[in-house]
Design a protein around this nucleic acid. Sequence first.
DNA 1: TGTACATCAGTGAACGCGCGTTCACTGATGTAC
DNA 2: TGTACATCAGTGAACGCGCGTTCACTGATGTAC
Lengths: 205, 205
Amino acid sequence: MGMSEFRRPQQQRSQKTYDALLDAAAELLEEVGIERISSNLVCERAGMTPPAFYRYFDDKYALLAALVDRLMDGQEALFARWLEGTRGVDIDTLARMTAELASAAAGLRNDQPGAIWILRALRAVPRLSELRLQAHDVTTQAITDLYVERLPHVPRERIMRRVRLGVEIGYGVDEMTRETNLSRAEVFEDLVHLFVSMAHYPDYA
Amino acid sequence: MGMSEFRRPQQQRSQKTYDALLDAAAELLEEVGIERISSNLVCERAGMTPPAFYRYFDDKYALLAALVDRLMDGQEALFARWLEGTRGVDIDTLARMTAELASAAAGLRNDQPGAIWILRALRAVPRLSELRLQAHDVTTQAITDLYVERLPHVPRERIMRRVRLGVEIGYGVDEMTRETNLSRAEVFEDLVHLFVSMAHYPDYA
DNA sequence: TGTACATCAGTGAACGCGCGTTCACTGATGTAC
DNA sequence: TGTACATCAGTGAACGCGCGTTCACTGATGTAC
């Protein structure tokens, strides 16, 4: 995504450099924030010189986009595994599992240094915001399929709108538990109830 | 907040300059985003020279903080008016009104140029994120009072946690309708249902 | 298996530019008598 | 009501610094015969 084929690392040494740059960027995003991170700073932290940076990235934004890609790859893998487990479950179980997915995704982000800061940067930088949108849309469509299957008489568009809201809430909850001292487990329980009740909107009956 | 008393504009001319700087900053935040805005750029747009800037603000962050203050003042006024209307209403009506508050607040932000970008910047800039937290906390406490009044047998802490979630959702919905083409009115209706159902959690009975 | 050459990966050093900020100053407004 | 002075508000011009980026190069790895 955004990276030309010939730029992809080809040798082992090269892959190491590429990863080191991404890791350094993630660290720095967490330490200094989006408005203070710079290409030279990333190079220094990665133990590289600036031209090494430009071998792999067109510019600063390409680096951030690559960081997003790496983060999203992890989430997609998680999502694929989760999807397996939803086969044949009833709608209430699906709702509960959706909350669990949100929680697992939050856990994943917690394990990846700088992950939240990448997402926060996505919100604030116009040139990157479309990446966030795309990711949310993909997730929304996939989850919508699951609910449509179980609510065949309800217009897909109506379900989709609410699933999209659920996705937004899932990310919001993650942010919230990070910046407050609310109990993660209790907020998660609230989320379960919320999603279950969303699966029983009056106009679904 | 963060601005020493002696720095406050005292003459009419001064007030004009101060406002011009804030307006310019809001515009630019919308146009170029948080990582490209600069003090010199703000001055130029406001038709001022840099030292005028430093008469009123310690630095770039003080300017952004002032922008937040101005935004929050508007929201507080809206909130105060809304609070008047909640006197004596039952809990379902309160839930519905809470959704309406979220919608009205979104409308207010829509009318203020750069408002969403101020909030997005708050998320992404470590030095400013506490301002966002404070604002959310104040709102949360005030709304919690209203629900506690109507649910005297439920621990305040439990209610507060869910109101906090509701506040997060309110802002999330606003963001979502801006960046998708989902119908604002329909999402708002979903929000009403959501808040009403949140007012009837199983452990409230 | 060794050598010659092509390609890949990274370095050293610097570029012009705009950033945040400050100095010494002039002009505008308010105040005292 | 006019003048003298104090304070307030903003200017002109520049500072050092780190930014994003690039040039010409060297060393490392892979490939052909």
